[in-house]
Design a protein around this nucleic acid. Structure first.
Length: 714
DNA sequence: GAGTTTGAAACT
DNA sequence: CAGTTTCAAACTC
């Protein structure tokens, strides 16, 4: 692949830059220049720790306004654009992907374009400079990594999670970044911001928002071909955005910009907001269009309204978020297009219920980490709120959130290793010895992973499958397991009474089920009824059904989704269309359910694993929505590649994958049935072919995790 | 922080 | 597939 030399980039950048300057967007930006404060705090103070974020800020539309103050920024952007678009280096190596290219193209002329390019650029910058220390190969890889959660210095779990997460292709990668960020934002950002792009509010207020950086973002939101702004936005969240969407987004963007110009920019910034908050917002904006939009909405409607103070310290994991969102969507979507607002609100609410820290980027990272851990059903939380139980968690996540594995003999290449099990590379926080779970040993990691998967296809699947939908739990739907959650394989506790983290069920915040072989089960999340006659499992017929279901769950990690929810799914990157892939959240090591926050009551379904939370993004795999439950898509898909087989590759590493089932997937299944059942949702992208590579080597096999397939339940 | 306990993962 | 060993997290002190 041709790499742009600095000069070349510059040249291209200049050209682009000029175009950019000519564009209305540019004008708009210029007009915004007065806004200064923005940059400062966040940018300066945070930059070091979180460069990516900082960059994002600058690169974001919002940032542009400051151009006067930072002339260079524009150049950078242009350069980035040139580089990324032209050579694709920035965003990904796999320019081959049609989607990606298209997407890029679509962006090109507009501000969006520059923005996205910028993001990529930034990411790139970050990435490789900071990220890895060791691996030469990670140019592309890191990108995904870093971009997501920026801080190089703090290569937190989140980032690592992301490693496996990105399945999407180039453009997608950029998107992924956005998405990740988005999630990050969701998790950590001020919940209020989420509502920003309320379609209804799109007027002058919207302008304001734009000023704040929402402009670029909003386009994404709006751009969706779908009628409903919100929904569109959600769709964008998906891994693959159709070019059309992008284009339309651009158009909208322009429109938005105009509006913005007309509006009073002075309102753009909420004085009461702290710099950090702003930073967050911007960051958010940069992240994901959808989210950004949301933010915008919020801003619009929000005005000077005081922000809610985060009530809780911990955030739900990404997975949680997704789940939450899903759940929310469920409620909301039913309403129809009009529900958009509502849905947004819902989302917001969900977020509110959680703690939405507004802290620094670093904090954000930590939070993210936490989230992975914390994902626990409300009920679970309620039951386990004892400080003691959380102690450890606090230690590792709160205190030293970055703490990871401490493997000594496994080389971090076995499931013993939480990092490995979670599909993430080990990083600084790890105390492991002789670690091979690093990008530099990508091959080894992948092969090992494959090996493990071969031995046990579910090895990397979520340990716990949860269905928090109350209705479901109640047995509302016969097809769903009554149990709120199921442990994939069931624990085998003997002495812990399933009351300690030793118990995966407990750790996952779920009750034990018939699959468990535990003794003296006292799992507060739900005991396994000890009707177990001989052997295991509950014997009665009713249970039998359940068992069957579990069976399938074990294999496919079945999840139920509300069809409506599905619509929302797009909002979360991971949940691609049909897929919903939820990358499983897992509690990070031992971080049991974090009781501190309250989850949305309606969580249609959440997946939990006792391991690290995995970035949902990867889950996106386009699940074929098929019925084939026995074999997870990912496996099917991966078959051929050495590493897991990605179908296509354009990158040098040849790892890039084209989304098999078209991640975008609008799966046919999405419409129609009452419930969607996600199947086999891998805990994290399979290194072997999918997510893993993606992160490391660009092998974005969407399929890896995609295993999730949505099936319509009756 | 060191040592113990625990149960999953890995091995036979 | 069952039994044993290995391993690292969880936990205790």
């Amino acid at each position: 692949m041709e790499m742009d030399t600095p000069e070349r980039s510059k040249v291209g950048g200049a050209s682009l830059s000029n175009k950019f300057e000519d564009s209305p967007v540019f004008s708009f930006i210029n007009s915004l220049s007065p806004i200064q404060p923005v940059k400062s705090t966040y940018a300066t103070s945070s930059v070091q720790a979180y460069q990516p974020l900082s960059f994002s800020i600058f690169t974001s539309p919002h940032a542009n306004p400051q151009k006067a103050q930072r002339p260079q920024l524009r150049d950078d952007i242009a350069e980035a654009t040139a580089t990324d678009i032209g050579s694709n280096n920035g965003c990904s190596e796999s320019s081959a992907q049609p989607n990606a290219q298209t997407a890029l193209t679509a962006f090109a002329p507009t501000k969006i374009n520059s923005e996205s390019s910028t993001q990529c650029l930034l990411n790139e910058a970050d990435k490789c400079t900071d990220f890895d220390a060791g691996s030469p190969d990670h140019n592309t890889t890191c990108r995904t990594f870093k971009t997501n959660f920026g801080p190089e210095t703090n290569e937190g779990p989140s980032q690592r999670k992301n490693l496996f997460a990105s399945e999407t292709a180039t453009s997608v990668e950029c998107k992924d970044e956005v998405i990740d960020n988005d999630w990050d934002y969701l998790l950590t950002g001020n919940p209020d911001d989420l509502l920003i792009c309320d379609p209804s509010t799109e007027g002058e207020e919207g302008s304001d928002t734009l000023a704040d950086g929402g402009a670029a973002n909003c386009p994404f939101l709006i751009n969706n071909t779908q009628p409903s702004g919100v929904e569109s936005h959600l769709h964008l969240g998906g891994t693959n955005q159709s070019p059309d969407v992008l284009v339309s987004g651009t158009v909208l963007n322009g429109k938005i910009l105009e509006q913005a110009q007309g509006g009073d920019l002075s309102n753009i910034i909420h004085k009461e907001e702290s710099q950090q908050q702003r930073g967050m917002r911007r960051r958010c904006l940069v992240f994901d269009p959808s989210v950004s939009v949301t933010s915008r909405s919020k801003m619009i409607s929000d005005g000077p309204k005081p922000r809610k103070a985060p009530a809780m310290p911990a955030l739900p994991g990404i997975g949680l978020h997704l789940n939450s969102l899903t759940a929310v969507s469920k409620d909301v979507l039913n309403v129809g297009n009009m529900s958009v607002h509502k849905s947004q609100t819902k989302v917001l609410v969900a977020c509110n219920s959680l703690e939405c820290p507004t802290g620094t980027s670093e904090e954000t990272n930590l939070l993210v980490e936490e989230s992975s851990l914390a994902i626990v059903p409300t009920d679970a939380v309620e039951h386990h709120n004892s400080p003691k139980k959380r102690r450890r968690k606090a230690d590792s996540s709160d205190g030293d959130a970055c703490k990871r594995c401490s493997c000594k003999k496994s080389k971090c290449l076995k499931l013993y290793c939480e990092c490995f099990a979670a599909g993430v590379y080990c990083s600084e926080p790890c105390a492991c010895q002789g670690c091979f779970n690093k990008p530099i040993h990508e091959e080894t990691v992948l092969s090992t992973r494959k090996q493990i998967e071969f031995r046990n296809p579910l090895a990397f699947a979520p340990k716990v499958i949860r269905t928090s939908d109350p209705g479901l739990e109640l047995g509302e739907d016969s097809n769903n397991t009554p149990a709120s959650a199921r442990h994939k394989r069931g624990c085998n506790c003997k002495k812990s009474n399933c009351l300690k983290k030793y118990c995966e069920c407990f750790q996952g915040g779920v009750g034990c089920s018939a699959s468990c072989r535990c003794e003296s089960c006292k799992n507060t999340f739900g005991r396994r009824e000890v009707f177990v006659h001989e052997g295991e499992g509950c014997g009665n017929g009713g249970d039998k059904e359940e068992e069957d279901l579990e069976d399938s769950q074990e294999k496919a990690a079945v999840q139920t989704f509300d069809p409506h929810a599905v619509d929302l799914i797009p909002i979360t990157p991971p949940f691609e269309t049909c897929g919903t892939l939820v990358k499983l959240p897992s509690y990070s090591s031992a971080k049991p359910p974090k009781p501190t926050y309250t989850l949305p009551t309606v969580i249609s379904s959440g997946l939990y694993t006792s391991r690290h939370l995995i970035n949902l993004k990867n889950l996106t795999t386009p699940i074929s929505c098929g019925e084939n439950e026995d074999t997870p898509d990912r496996y099917l898909i991966n078959n051929d590649s050495p590493h897991g087989g990605v179908t296509k590759t354009s990158s040098p590493n040849g790892k890039r994958v084209s989304p098999p089932h078209s991640s975008t997937g609008a799966s046919p299944n999405r419409k129609g049935g009452r419930k969607l059942i996600l199947k086999s949702i891998p805990s994290f992208p399979s290194l072997a072919g999918d997510g893993f590579n993606d992160c490391f080597g660009n092998n974005h096999k969407s399929s890896s995790f995609s295993s999730t397939s949505l099936t319509r339940g009756s």
